[in-house]
Amino acid sequence: MKFAIQWIRENLFAGWVSSAFTLLLIFVLWKTLPPFIDWAFLDAVWKPDSKACRAGEGACWGFIAEKHRFILFGTYPYDLHWRPAVATVLLIGLWIFSAIRLFWKWWLTLVWLSGLTTIGILMWGGILGLPYVENERWGGLILTLLLTTFGLAIAFPLSILLALGRRSDMPVIRGLSVGYIELIRGVPLISLLFMASVMLPLFLPSGVTIDKLLRAQIAMILFAAAYLAEVVRGGLQAIPRGQYDAAHALALPYWRRTYLIILPQALRISVPPLMNTFIAFFKDTSLVLIIGLFDLLSTIKISLNEPAWTGFGIEAYVFASLVYFVFCYAMSRYSRGLEHQR
């Protein structure tokens, strides 16, 4: 008991200013927390009944209950929803699997290849008796996850090349790398999405088409490559000069010494900021809404357009926040765990 009083004294009332803050914060919490709990839980309507929702005073979670299939799977054919559902679980499973250090072996690549192939078969279909579903109809959580996964997977090796290029002593290579990186980092992601959406069809020979999803994916890849390149470059700069000297002294050719000595160390140092960039990229996929793709945020927003459910935007976006928060917070905790292990 004495401990508790001492703790309260030191941590909440340590002086005039501290005590004032404590009282102020307790007041603010008292004013906001109970009304929020009333709104979010006690008065909330959980049934998918829009009339009850409008009549009630609390949050309308019934909106989510009613629309959850569209939110999770977009315009995918209704009775085939098991396919994106399995694909989503499989993809999340792959992420979690790759997070466990025990599994960081050479065969992880094979696991990924087979996993992605399975996901591809599930989503597209067309073989093994599964009806074909064109990717214009994909949407919801699986789309967000796929954009993130492919975006990072392809952008990461590109970013390593860019970072090495930026540190090259060949002026042309360095110039091209710097130019690319500064250009992409200097403009908003939206302009890149617009560019991909509108200009990519113009860049290709007439008659060759490229579907919307691929356009968005390419833009996201180009975007991520530039930002990841700067993180990798930071890692390359952080390696002690002596490592480069030792590698040179061993007379290894450029690519050999880069692959065996420089990159492993650079990437190890870069893990925390790399994870931060991954998390930011996951959040950035929400922007594809603006060019008409049906990612998770998009499906939530579109659900509000139905007249029965307009006006429940707050519930919708609180729900969206929670979903994204769960994913991002999990990733950032994992990243902090990695940091401590090293």
């Binding site: 959040k283 950035d284 929400s286 945020l297 976006y317 994204y324 991002c328």
Partner: peptide, 8 residues
């Protein structure tokens, strides 16, 4: 930091 800006 863990919720996309667009959602906010």
């Amino acid at each position: 930091r863990n919720v996309p800006l667009l959602v906010q």
